[in-house]
Amino acid sequence: MSDSSDENDSQYVLYRDRPEWKNVTPLKQDDADEPVVAIDYTEAFVDCFDYFRAILKNKEISERALELTQTAAHLNPANYTVWQYRRDILKGLDKDLNEELDYIETVILKQTKNYQVWHHRKVIVEWLKDPSKEKYLTEAVLTKDAKNYHAWQHRQWVIKTFKLFDGELDYVDCLITDDVRNNSAWNQRYFIINNTTGFTEEVLKREIDYTLLHIKIVTENESAWNYLRGLLLHAKEGLSKNKRVSDFCEELYASGNRSPFLLAVIVDMCCEVASDGAGDTRYTVERAKELCGELMTKYDKVRANYWQHMIETMDNVGKKGTEDEGSSVN
């Protein structure tokens, strides 16, 4: 707990010293008979969870119990039982869930990588059927950590469930402009298109242009190259026969660029042409093998064994045409 916590404030009163809790007998942690570990928590922690166990046991649904879960969640936000019981209380007391949304927002902004707090948010949004604050919240989190998996997951859920696709492509464009290597943003691009227009010929053309433009800015960008490959999975002509893409790659290569991702795409274009048996004369097995050799020894030494494998695969393609390389599962 790195943030300033209530229990450190001088006015914080232990539950055992609060008059409204006098009629509850706190319930000690029941690890006593087989002490895997000796116990000596800080006082506020012990005090709060002793009372939490007591209300859980008595199934107490009350304002004070609700307040207690807030302290317990503050002391240990990852404790999922606390959140579950809090929801029982919210329902039981028929509380204003908008207040709960405000409260959980403050918690999420401090605990952005905690499964329980995001799940609590999701349940409350589902109960309210009101997604109007979710884009704002996730944007607040993504501003600080643009790849936060929980925030993206929540955002995708909200957008898909409540059909909030409008404006999302613009938002993603801002993020990519900010950081062209943001893989989460590229993935979100795919998510939006897949869920809206689909990859029609027109959309493909637009997206290919968009991606090539961004590859030009940073050529050693795994995310953009992977997105390009993802797009071309939807193109009838495959990887090698899209003139726009192949011309772009050749131009980049001719300019002296040796990004491993560029070379890898050219290698795959060569493999595709070789296994099709005909096509662009720029793409030959010999060229691919030469590139793999350069990747192995110069441009991507870490993955030398992968490039060696590619050379061997091409030798097989040369021999067997389009046949499978003969792997098996066991």
């Binding site: 998996y149 989460s184 993935n187 490959r229 993802g230």
Partner: peptide
């Protein structure tokens, strides 16, 4: 996913 990987739910990174 299109990159051959898998995410937490459909179309998650």
């Amino acid at each position: 996913n299109f990159d051959g990987g898998f995410g937490s739910r459909p179309l998650s990174e």
